[in-house]
Design a protein around this nucleic acid. Structure first.
Length: 214
DNA sequence: TTATCGATTGACT
DNA sequence: GTCAATCGATAAC
């Protein structure tokens, strides 16, 4: 039934125009969809990290560094920022106002549709390992550098509304040990307890859907 | 659990 | 030309 999976309409540009930290948590539970000639694959976003260029030493765009690579972060919110590191492509959602180089890294998704395709692309059987990391999910979904700068409000790569998470946790970001004090900013967000979160780590804060905070 | 190596890209000298 | 990087898989311990 994969060809007929009924996704809701892509989110609008306004959704992406909220402040970057809000967007990073709002993206949890949303559905990331990529359509290719091989078929469609989609997953629920379960883990994100915010990068706020101007004052964030961990961001590629720290201190407003504007280069061919970071250029897209200076543009309108809702575009795709993809880049390659080592053997992997990483996917970010551009956020912030035009002129402010901010983005949200997608670090984990829960497979929702196109599972066979993901298994094939990853060359491994189904498991949490399929999409529980930023390089893993791009490979599973077929995201690559040709998606650089694509607006996430339309095909073939887009984001739609999904189930609202019961509980969201936040804590320090992963893999930025060399970033001065920015390494301790609690700008990572994940769906509490989800098995497709890339790494288990102590939450500094957990917010349950209906208010309460622990 | 930590360590190392792969192998690509962009940024800076 | 050189080097570091929003990582992943595997090997060693």
């Amino acid at each position: 039934m994969e060809g007929t999976f009924n996704f809701s309409k892509p989110l609008d540009t306004d959704f992406f125009q909220q402040p970057t930290l809000d967007l990073a948590s709002s993206l949890l539970g949303c559905i990331l969809v990529k359509e290719t000639e091989e078929g469609t694959a989609a997953g629920i976003i379960v883990e994100t990290e915010a990068y706020i260029g101007p004052m964030d030493q961990a961001a590629h765009s720290y201190d407003n560094r504007r280069t061919a690579r970071t250029e897209i972060m200076f543009h309108q919110a809702g575009l795709a920022y993809t880049y390659v590191m080592h053997t992997h492509t990483l996917f970010n959602v551009v956020s912030g106002e035009p002129g402010k180089p901010e983005a949200v890294l997608i670090r984990g998704v829960e497979p929702l549709s196109g599972l066979d395709l993901m298994v094939k692309r990853r060359g491994m059987p189904e498991s949490a390992n399929l999409t529980n990391g930023p390089g893993k999910l791009t490979k599973a979904l077929g995201i690559n550098m040709s998606d650089y700068g694509h607006p996430l409000t339309k095909k073939p790569l887009f984001i739609t509304q999904g189930p609202v998470p019961d509980s969201i946790s936040s804590g320090k970001r992963i893999g930025i040990d060399n970033s001065g004090e920015a390494r301790d900013y609690p700008w990572r967000f994940w769906i509490t307890g989800n098995r497709y979160v890339s790494r288990h780590q102590k939450a500094e804060k957990t917010i349950v859907n209906n208010g309460g905070s622990t």
